[in-house]
Amino acid sequence: MTTTATTSADTGTEAPAVTAAARRKKLVPYWLLLPGILWLVVFFAAPLVYQASTSVQTGSLEEGFKVTWHFATYADALTEYYPQFLRSVAYSATATVLCLALGYPLAYLIAFKAGRWRNLLMVLVIAPFFTSFLIRTLAWKTILSDGGPVVSALGSLHILDVTNALGVTEGHRVLATPLAVVCGLTYNFLPFMILPLYTSLERIDPRLHEAAGDLYATPLTTFRKVTFPLSMPGVVAGTLLTFIPATGDYINAELLGSTDQKMIGNVIQSQFLRVLDYPTAAALSFILMAAILAMVTLYIRKSGTEDLV
């Protein structure tokens, strides 16, 4: 009894000062977060709320738009533009798979085999970023132009016959076909695939490869059982960084495709800037966002990345 009394008396005198200091210390991280939070509020949360309210407005440009909680815009937008939605997902998924197929070997090579060329190769990977997205896509327009050397080469090698049969090109053209748009997407987003892949591969201790070899694993088995599982965080990050922006992209479809290759990004862009139907454009944006969010969540669940590292 006596001891309890003394202790509480002791803490009674000292506690307030101590806890106040401790509390201030605990708050420091939150103060440091403040600029970031402000940034998010001003440039993410506020526009989001504004768009949300736009999506449930009705009216016209002349009379002005009013919030009427008109949710039917969503249903109408979806029924009218679902082909573009599906096309976006299909193009973007194809481009993501192609990026992975092209990017993985390259990242692997740079991480494990490049030796002193490593840094130079990494600079080359990000070199395209030194020019603008638009210019690079325009360059592809020239590269794939009708009758240009690339198209004639593909034609004389009978590759165009194959792609025609697959339905991704038509006649003697590459431009204004699905192939061109997917190629453009693949090219433009490849660095976003390679960078996270490289980062996760580079972190793998090469001694693990030795250990696997020592334990009777052939190089192929070593890759299947050790390297690839350990690079999963990079694969997941890379596919997300490619898939998400590629789904919403409109420049590739705009410059390399025709009206038959319009993606959802093109629709949103024209609704906002040309048709000036703001509610539909906002609703489409929200549908796109929700769809991507749902797909990404499902994907992360499936790939079980939380288990890795």
Partner: peptide, 20 residues
């Protein structure tokens, strides 16, 4: 012969356990 074909096993100085 490559390591996986040799009838030897190694206990590595750095352990080299598979983290996953």
């Amino acid at each position: 012969l490559p390591p996986h074909k040799r009838p030897v096993n190694t206990v590595f100085q750095s352990y080299a356990l598979f983290p996953h």
